[in-house]
Design a binder for these strands. Sequence first.
DNA 1: ATAGGGTTAG
Length: 653
Amino acid sequence: MIAFSCKFSTATANYLTYISLKRFPPKPRTFTPLSQIQQQCKQLECQLVSTLDGCENLNQIKQVHAHILLNGLDQSCYVLAKLIRMFTKFNIPLDPYPRPIFNRVKYPNPFLYTALIRGYLIEARFNESIELYSLMRKEGVGPVSFTFTSLFKACGANMDVGLGQQIHGQTIVIGGFGADLHVGNSMIEMYIKCGFLECGRKLFDEMPKRDVISWTELIVAYGKSGNMESACELFDGLPVKDMVAWTAMVSGFAQNAKPREAITFFEKMLEFGVETDEITLVSVISACAQLGAAKYADWIHDVAEKSGFCGRHSVLVGSALIDMYSKCGSVGEACRVFEGMKERNVYSYSSMILGFAMHGRARDAMDLFDEMVKTEVKPNRVTFIGVLTACSHAGMVEQGQEIFELMEKRYGIKPSAAHYTCMVDLLGRAGRLQEAHDLVKTMPIEPHGGVWGALLGACRIHKNPDVAAIAANHLFELEPNCIGNYILLANIYASSGRWNDVSTIRKLMRTRGLKKNPAFSWIESEKGMVHEFFSWDMTHPRSGEIKRALEDLLDRLEGKGYQPNFNSVPYDMNDEDKRRILMTHSEKLALAFGLISTTPGSDIRIVKNIRICEDCHSVMCGASQITGREIVVRDNMRFHHFHDGTCSCGGFW
DNA sequence: ATAGGGTTAG
């Protein structure tokens, strides 16, 4: 309207105003109560906070920040606290940029202070955060429980119990925050993360109020420290058990190599009608993988499909299934799961590559790795362990060395002791013992037991007692109680006839009080029953039949030119006695039982707790030929697929 | 405005 007054006469202007008012009557003026405006402001704040929450990158956050300033909200602690938390979330250091935002606020509230304190703590800048914390208290602001939970979280992440304890003391002094449930839980978590489980437990016992979260934190901590008895005790005392608490128990058992208990717990969970999710499933699947039993594999796969988390829709479950099927001897099934997955992450690829490697399918492992590097998924250190293992099982030395080089140069992954183990294994298996030994001597990190163990293993294949003695002496210092090393060295001495050295090792074992842990094998019958066999084991109800079947098999093999291999018998005795000992190896008993108890023509799957010996290996080869059966043996290292007289390991194991 | 459970290797 004002614009008209310059161009027209007053009368005209009045007239035009009159017309315009008629067409656009002014809205009636109403008084908006202050509370309503406050509400609108609050709404705007809420909107901005949720917009910030949805930000996916720094640019978006900066845009919202500009909007905040435009709307004159540079004093709104609620919005600014969220803004600062977002900067922290995206790892933006507080100092050059976000800090001034705080400095311009006249009356910061506890949440704004806390956002900044938390940010500094995450940056591990303790001085700044403690300064802010004391400033906050000097100004008479807060603290609130969120302040303490942040402080404890950061102390836990930085493993700083000293600071944690100091603040713990203050929670009691300041307004009784020590009694706050959330603060209490974060204190327990802090003590646990810093490795002081018992302090966490003491706190738990003294807490006036506890919830299922306090309980679960401790259950998990006990599980991680290998103390499942205490975990069970706590779980029994937990009044209201929810899905997360149950899952903590299942995964606790799985992580402590108690797969049967893990499965039992999971079954109970289903029985009680407790909900299960991907994480629960992943934990049970890993338990089934440890069992290595095909029956459980199919069962859990079925359960997963029925609960809607099949491999196709869940990367998590899919990856776990791949690992499980590989460990149960069904690489084919693992492949099928892998192929069917809509989304794949580093776990999916690594598990599949490791699966191929375990089964001696080196070419497939390498091809998959080449395919992987063309995708967005970045290989990690586990992926390289898979690729290197594949190379060493197939004797692909040059390819392995090339990958080892690229690992650091192209992918920025520093080789760990485990990677050096793979390389020693690769060179050693290929018979390049000197190079393997040189690598151990020149590696930039301290060689651990695994590295020397790989060298010792290579000496067994290539019968080199001198290098073996060097490796074993390191192992006797690093792992004095690991019986396997003594036995391996004794075997190597025995196979080159150095009986004096064999008896020296025996004496050493005796003085250190070491006993051989029994070797055993197990096989699943067609009904899903698991049959265990120890060496010399005649306790099986069908022992007589088993013995006859085995003798019969060996006779037929000898007709084809099989000769018993005495290298695996580290005793100075005559060949007839050695022959009798070889007869009693547990995997041979399991094989004989498999032959008489399963349908002719079906696969035979045997699992063994230690490495398969040379003689059993050649018997398995022969048996696969004369019976026409596919025989799969999983030892503690890998899988052997025997088919028509040859093994997938190509003689390397 | 905040929380507890998870898979691959050694």
